[in-house]
Design a protein around this nucleic acid. Structure first.
Length: 155
DNA sequence: GCCAACGTTGGC
DNA sequence: GCCAACGTTGGC
């Protein structure tokens, strides 16, 4: 899951969020609101299950890379920020009866001692097929078990 | 339903 | 700030 720790201005409001922000939340837990992409939504709504591990990624910043490990602590439910006209993530096409956007809650498990940079991840043959490396542009994306294991072994 | 125009993402 | 890759919109 990608977060943007440095720069994220939506409708004039700073909605940036990084691993230290997650750490500062009660129980190191946060809802993952604001995702407005169908593929990313489908993963959160349909695929992500309680206890699933999450690679917490820092994007669009000085050193893009994996910053920590988190866990899914609540499965997909409607992203209510889309219902609020005053909210930066407001979407008039979504409402209580037929919610268009979904989110999960995640809890920080471990903040890495150093960010594992994308530039390094790109160098490993074992990660050649990783969505992050191949496609990049998708804010919530699946990680293969083998890729996850490989990355864990790097830490 | 096609596809051109436009908007966004995100590494560099 | 640039720009390539990807996503969305809307006229036809």
């Amino acid at each position: 899951m990608k977060s943007e720790p440095e720069t994220r201005i939506v409708k004039g409001k700073d909605v940036s969020f990084g691993i230290t922000d997650l750490q500062a939340m009660e129980n190191s837990t946060s809802q993952w609101d604001g995702v407005r992409n169908y593929k990313a939504r489908n993963y959160m709504r349909d695929e992500m299950k309680l206890g699933d591990k999450v690679l917490f990624y820092h994007s669009n910043c000085k050193v893009p890379g994996i910053a920590g490990i988190a866990t899914v602590v609540r499965e997909g439910y409607p992203d209510y920020t889309a219902f609020d006209p005053g909210h930066p993530y407001y979407d008039p096409k979504s409402n209580q009866d037929t919610p268009k956007w979904f989110m999960v809650d995640i809890k920080l498990e471990k903040k890495l001692d150093r960010v594992l940079p994308l530039s390094e991840l790109k160098q490993y043959r074992e990660l050649r097929e990783m969505v992050l490396v191949k496609q990049g542009r998708l804010s919530v994306q699946p990680v293969r078990q083998s890729e996850y294991n490989f990355i864990m072994a790097l830490l």
